[in-house]
Amino acid sequence: MGFRQVTDRLAHGMVALVALTAIVAIVLIFVFVFREAMPILTDPGVHREVSLSRLFLPLEQASEGRPFIWQPVGAVPKYSLVPLIIGTLKTTLIAILLAAPLGIGAAVYTSEFAPAGLREWIKPVIELLAGIPSVVLGFFALIVLASWLQRAFGFTARLNATTAGVALALAVIPIIYSVSEDALTAVPQSYREASLALGASAWQTAIRIVVPAALPGVLASLVLGFGRAVGETMIVLMASGNAAITSWNFADSTRTLSATIAAELGEVIFGSPHYRVLFFIGALLFIVTFLLNALGAYIVGRVRRRLMGSE
């Protein structure tokens, strides 16, 4: 075997080895986040302060009729995740309700109706929205948007679930748009031509033929957008007000799971129950976003195979 062949073999081996990094990284993330959270399930010392049931079920030492309290610093720390979960759902819901019609509407417009010249521009412009760092969106929500929304809706709390949700929508729109747009453009041209040839109008073709054919992909875009919204941190940390109130009122100041980690991990004692709970929240976010992304990717893959024929 000559020198060239040896180099060739070596290169193949090295490339394959380096390519394992992604797999190793995912495994390490899983292991190290869960390892720090595990003592909640196993360590009796930690159990005195916090356990699975106390994270999710009503607290026994409920004060003033409030069964769910997040109050990790105090004489008797209370670690109910319920207010944080509700906070996350509230901001996420607002974000999706706002981003879905805009993102999907824009996707249908770009793929079905926009003149070719305009289409070339819209796509990169919306991609640019994804290029704004989330800390900048958080800043904009905190300094500018919060005042506008307060004036418009008369919120008592300047920073609240709605403000955070609207800002979050800005981060979610590019995902919903680009995944939906991909699904719509993947619909074969022959579908459109057949429909138009039968006398259907452009609008009928878009709504009754193209959108139904791409529907799973559009739904997947919502799932992926939801996953992004649940995990997004800086925007909600800066714009939600961060009060852990158990309430479904969208005008209340609110605290999400992700923002809780960001706000509290810096001051927590290494290895304390509070530290464990924050890692537990991280593990929870990891699992939830993993499942949402897997579901989204699965749907996108199926649509692609169905529309393009199995390869």
């Binding site: 993330i29 995990g231 941190t233 991990l265 890692f279 991280g282 976010l285 993993f290």
Partner: peptide, 12 residues
């Protein structure tokens, strides 16, 4: 999967 992991989890 890596692309979907929330950035705060990367911090942890």
């Amino acid at each position: 999967t890596l692309a979907g992991v929330p950035s705060i989890v990367f911090g942890l």
